[in-house]
Computed example of a mutant assay.
Amino acid sequence: MFFVRTASERDLAKVSALLGETWHATYDALYGADKVSEITARWHSVPALKARLARKDSEFVVADNGRELGGMGYAAMAKDRPKTAFLHQLYVLPRYQRQGIGRDLFAELETCFPDANAMLLEVDPRNEAAVAFYGAHGFVKVGETQHTADGISGVPLHVYEKPLGG
Rank of each mutant, 00 (worst) to 15 (best):
M1R: 08
F2C: 08
F2G: 09
F3Q: 12
F3V: 11
V4Q: 10
V4H: 10
R5C: 13
T6D: 14
T6M: 07
A7W: 07
A7Q: 09
S8R: 14
S8L: 00
L12I: 01
K14R: 15
V15G: 00
V15C: 05
S16E: 01
S16A: 09
L19Q: 12
G20D: 04
T22D: 05
A25Y: 00
A25Q: 03
T26M: 03
A29H: 02
L30R: 02
L30I: 15
Y31V: 11
Y31W: 13
A33K: 05
D34P: 02
D34M: 03
K35P: 01
T40S: 06
R42H: 14
W43M: 14
A48H: 02
L49H: 07
K50W: 03
A51S: 12
R52Y: 06
R52K: 13
R52Q: 15
R52E: 13
L53C: 07
S58L: 04
S58G: 14
F60G: 00
V62M: 09
A63P: 01
N65A: 04
N65Q: 04
G66N: 08
R67E: 15
E68W: 02
L69W: 02
G70K: 04
G71L: 08
G71P: 04
Y74H: 08
A75D: 10
A75S: 13
A76Y: 14
A78E: 13
K79H: 09
R81D: 14
R81K: 15
P82Q: 10
F86R: 07
F86P: 00
L87F: 10
L87M: 06
H88I: 04
Q89C: 00
L90S: 05
L90T: 08
V92D: 05
V92R: 06
L93H: 15
L93M: 12
R95N: 10
Y96D: 00
Y96K: 03
R98G: 01
G100P: 04
G100N: 07
I101L: 11
I101R: 00
G102C: 11
G102F: 11
G102R: 08
D104Q: 15
F106T: 00
C112Y: 00
D115G: 15
D115W: 04
N117P: 00
N117C: 13
N117I: 13
L120C: 00
L120W: 09
L121P: 09
L121W: 04
D124H: 14
D124L: 05
D124V: 11
D124Q: 06
P125Y: 02
R126E: 12
R126Q: 11
A129Q: 13
A130S: 15
A130F: 07
Y134S: 12
Y134L: 09
G135K: 09
G135V: 00
G135C: 07
A136N: 11
G138E: 06
F139G: 11
G143D: 11
E144G: 14
H147P: 00
D150W: 03
I152D: 12
P156S: 05
L157P: 00
H158Y: 10
H158W: 15
V159Q: 14
Y160S: 07
Y160A: 05
K162H: 12
K162A: 10
P163E: 08
L164I: 06
G165T: 12
